[in-house]
């Protein structure tokens, strides 16, 4: 079996006096979409932030494409090819949509083919191209946050709860966008609370609870196993539809 693109081994993270991650182990295969599920406070966001170096792992190892990035700084981790969309979206509201994209393309101007592809995924952004990003609705901000993460080719995308707080119609268009990203061969680690969205997208699933990995496997198995859904998530897929 090929070496995974991202591998976490026994990762512990402390935030101040609090011990949040307790020996997290998982692997993300290249070219697949892996869902990271779990209830609020399970440690999903902490896991993504630890991978990005925004919070330092206190022990354990994070390997990306065979390289140990555990102690790397956030800019170096980003430069290695990891794109990050935080739960807060963190778009630059004072900058226009265009300026947000220009800034995200660190290595140089976005070529027109890539820009067309991005605006094809999120056509609403074109209408607001020269407007301050702060004027966008919640769903449009989420689109911009994802567009910013793919403004230049990335090897791995970490996306934190992109459908949170969005209207159902916006959730559906977001699912379509992720399907397109998947079809384009992007490797994605996606944190999600919405099991309906997760089941529609994921190749693999990892479930966290209380800072630990409690399950990992193929998404298909979890979709087919109602007892597993009930035991790990407290809800079945039926309840989300």
């Amino acid at each position: 079996m090929a070496e995974p693109l991202l591998q976490l081994s026994g990762v512990h993270t402390h935030i101040g006096p609090y011990h949040i991650l307790h020996g997290v182990d998982f692997a993300i295969p290249a070219g697949q979409l892996t869902m990271l599920l779990g209830r609020n406070g399970a440690g999903k966001t902490t896991t993504l932030r630890t991978i990005m170096g925004l919070w330092q792992a206190s022990s354990g190892a994070i390997r990306f494409d065979g390289q140990d990035i555990t102690k790397n700084s956030t800019p170096n981790i980003a430069r290695a090819g990891i794109g990050y969309v935080p739960e807060s979206m963190a778009i630059f509201t004072d900058l226009t949509v265009r300026e947000n994209i220009v800034l995200a393309a660190r290595s140089g101007p976005v070529d027109s083919a890539r820009l067309d592809w991005m605006l094809g995924l999120f056509p609403a952004l074109k209408r607001f191209w020269n407007l301050p990003a702060g004027n966008l609705s919640g769903g449009q901000k989420q689109m911009l946050a994802i567009a910013r993460a793919i403004a230049e080719p990335r090897r791995l995308l970490l996306i934190d709860e992109p459908t949170k707080g969005l209207a159902p119609v916006m959730v559906r268009s977001m699912i379509e966008a992720f399907k397109a990203l998947k079809a384009a061969g992007e490797t994605i680690l996606l944190v999600e609370q919405n099991f309906y969205a997760a089941s529609a997208l994921g190749d693999n699933v990892i479930v966290m609870d209380d800072g630990r990995i409690v399950h990992s496997g193929a998404m298909r198995e979890m979709v087919e196993d109602k007892n597993l859904q009930q035991r790990l998530l407290g809800l079945s897929l039926d309840a989300h539809q």
Partner: peptide, 10 residues
């Protein structure tokens, strides 16, 4: 506005 996100962009 958000220095942390600037770092996350590399």
């Amino acid at each position: 506005e958000n220095p942390e996100m600037v770092e996350a962009l590399g």
